[in-house]
Amino acid sequence: METTAPIRITAKPSSTHWDLIRTILAQSRTEFRRCFHCQSCGGGCPVSHAMTYRPNGIIRLIQLGLVREALQSSDIWLCIGCNTCSMVCPQAIDIAALMDVMRHMAIEEGVSPAEPGILAFHREVVNSIHRYGRTHKLEIMLRYKIRMLDMFSDFDVGLKMLAKRKLDLRPSKISDRKVMKRIFEACRVPPNGYGR
């Protein structure tokens, strides 16, 4: 099982906390140092019940220079990117954009993800787009299940979806097959995709 290979190195493994904070500021383009921890973000977050630190906790870790702890947390992977936190923040911090940057940084820094399943799922989706130009849900599910060595959970849900024709057996494809290769090359993704 291969889920933690670095994709693109932009920050050196020896980066200091300050380097990392500067990188987070530059890439997220949001001034998270304004956060005064009112916790509105956590109150609105639909997945905060499953998080360890909750969104403002991740910001606090970064403010305290504990970037590695933030990168190693489940929270950055559990974040769905629903933008609710960004909408409610009284300091106008785009927390969802910050979470994106934290995920990218965790991958780049080679941090072992606290939620390997979620990263594996994202990779299967991106690999599906690489292959077909569109997502093929059935294949994504099957490949994800194989990768996670979990073939039996949700078996009933899968069968129900198949019976209701919610899962197509064949993928919907784009006809320009070269274009995805071009995009992936431009993004410097390895030619065999994300960890197959």
Partner: peptide
């Protein structure tokens, strides 16, 4: 083609 959904921006902008 696919817009990238939630997965593309989660792992690479």
């Amino acid at each position: 083609n696919c817009c990238g959904s939630s997965s593309a921006h989660s792992i690479q902008s």
